[in-house]
Design a protein around this nucleic acid. Structure first.
Lengths: 341, 341
DNA sequence: TTGAAAGCGCTACCAT
DNA sequence: ATGGTAGCGCTTTCAA
């Protein structure tokens, strides 16, 4: 790798001169001839400034970090994609890290990224703990949470209206006559899930629905877990006539369980999923889905972060709530005798 | 951010002593008392060594870069996920960059990452040009290509048996009686696609199938492009009775076109896709798919890279070819009169 | 118009 | 057992 020194040597000038020429604006006092020589040398040696050294010297890396729990989940993949594009537009690099829903890993990533001189951080936190984020906040380090946040700990965040959307989905099912509705929730320590659960329970109370505790399942967020939890629920002595499922991978897992059990959607069972995937309309039964404005979420998270990174003084924290949309499908139908039997 | 100096000051020792204590093995000549003081100070100040400075000093960053064209494509997302996990196991950080199939962006990423002192690079190249990779190779910089490689330019690579798998898929359709088979190819400048096209054409020749040029479509890799190209093909005066589709997003786009046109799979049209997604079995028609061992591809690419990064001397390049598998589905059926009409 | 020197935070080597 | 120093590659201020 060619260094400033190498270029300087080839161009027969001092390294500092090279730096000035390569960095500075048009109207810098330099002889056209020297500039030519330096440019030629830089190209000749395929010189690219060492970003570590620059970052060290400048105290700025023009890079931000993103920590997400799962990159193979389209939910986070699409958010990552949009953040990456926003970064690119703004001249930033993005460093993506995958915590795999492992709190230890997340903590390591936070430490590692900050000590790499990353200018800011966007995190979809695992939410088993948050002491490491309190430390970040204390150090006045700019960061934005996405999708998940803490009720008891104030930070920047971009989240969605989970409680309302879960309630609306339930209401939709209730209007079709369903009264025994299961909720495949995911990991309940997470903000998103707690809110959705609250929306579910609210509907259960308002409409006095079946309260069988087994109707609420707490697994994890993976395909496998969705599959297993759904199988368990379908084999209840009194299985539900409808399902509310919380997340892409879980929904696909539930789908597998339903298909394998030989049930038809929506004839035998209705299904609404919190599902963000281009394929939902082309599934065995086109899914009625609660969808997130993922690109918008990513863009707003980055904009908020940028704002805080550029701020001269401490800015107040923002909590941005985006609206979900119900994508109509064909996976819900009125209740029928067969289901009640 | 606390520095070595801060810790040293608090512990009343010299910075170099702190560095030694924090870095070195057990049997380093140091008084237990001093060690205690230093450790306490480090924890007190929440000290984390500046990785930029370390990387600069050590000439090693313990970070590798990954450049992929599209993170919201499950194909690349799963590869990224597996590489990330391998990295983590080996104590490396992963920096993911998304080129969005834009050659300029990829070139920028390569320059940017290398000048960040990244130890190695895994790239699924855009393949509009490769001068930048030639430069990397000249500098003896370790990198591995994944999924796509260059016939005329020798590098490390992990790829799959595209030509054979395309031929096999065609054979499968031919045996069902299909003779007018369309190929939705994606961008044909890419190795993967050229190979698949070769397999397709080989089958066309061997079995003397319909050679209508319009049966071969060259769009891009996106959902939208798959949708449009497929619509075009379905509205041919003599539409095909079967479709071979190259890639996740294209397949989903094609699915949309088929569903919207009111065609049924496989009654009206057969479909085989190069599709790696957990949802393929739960699509309108469970898809017959050619799948890649994605986790394995990622793991092998990383292992190969690691080998080259650790090598004292120049190693010979490896080209690893992994095998695809045909996942049986219900999206293919024997040809019938309706199709021929 | 260009050169010299200091220093970002760290580690490795050489002193003591 | 601990301290001092040089230097990784860069930028910036000051000097000439």
């Amino acid at each position: 790798m060619a260094t400033l020194k190498d270029v300087a040597f080839l161009a027969q000038v001092h390294p500092s001169t090279v730096s000035r020429v390569l960095r500075c604006s048009e109207n810098l006092p330099i002889s056209a001839e020297t500039r030519q020589r330096i440019m030629a040398a830089a190209i000749e040696l395929d010189y690219h400034p060492d970003q570590r050294a620059r970052a060290l010297r400048l105290g700025k890396s023009n890079t931000i970090g993103l920590i997400i729990p799962d990159i193979s989940n389209p939910f986070f993949a699409d958010i990552a994609q949009s953040i990456e594009q926003e970064c690119h537009k703004a001249g930033y690099m993005l460093m993506v890290c995958v915590s795999n829903e492992d709190q230890e890993k997340e903590i390591n990533f936070v430490n590692n990224l900050t000590s790499r001189g990353i200018d800011g951080l966007i995190i979809a936190p695992v939410q088993d703990s948050y002491a490491h984020l309190v430390r970040l906040k204390k150090k006045n380090y700019p960061f934005v949470l996405i999708d998940r946040c803490f009720e008891e700990f104030e930070t920047n965040a971009v989240i969605s209206d989970n409680e309302a959307s879960a309630f609306d989905a339930m209401e939709h099912l209730v209007k079709l006559g369903h009264r025994r509705i299961a909720f495949l929730s995911g990991r309940p320590t997470i903000y998103t899930i707690r809110k959705r659960l609250a929306g579910y329970l609210h509907a259960v109370n308002v409409y006095d629905l079946d309260r069988t505790p087994e109707l609420i399942s707490n697994g994890g967020f993976t395909f496998e877990q969705g599959y297993k939890e759904c199988l368990k629920i379908l084999s209840l002595p009194e299985p539900p006539s409808a399902l509310l499922v919380s997340g892409n991978q879980i929904t696909f897992g539930a789908l597998r369980a339903i298909v394998e059990t030989g049930l038809k959607i929506p004839e035998d069972i209705s299904l609404i999923g919190f599902t963000d995937s281009i394929v939902t309309p082309f599934l065995v039964s086109p899914l009625t889905a609660i969808t997130h404005p993922l690109r918008d979420m990513g863009a707003r998270a980055f904009a908020l972060l940028l704002q805080h990174m550029n701020a001269k003084e401490r800015l107040p924290f923002s909590r941005i709530v985006v609206e979900t949309k119900m994508l109509p499908g064909a996976s819900t139908a009125p209740i029928n005798e067969k289901m009640i039997a």
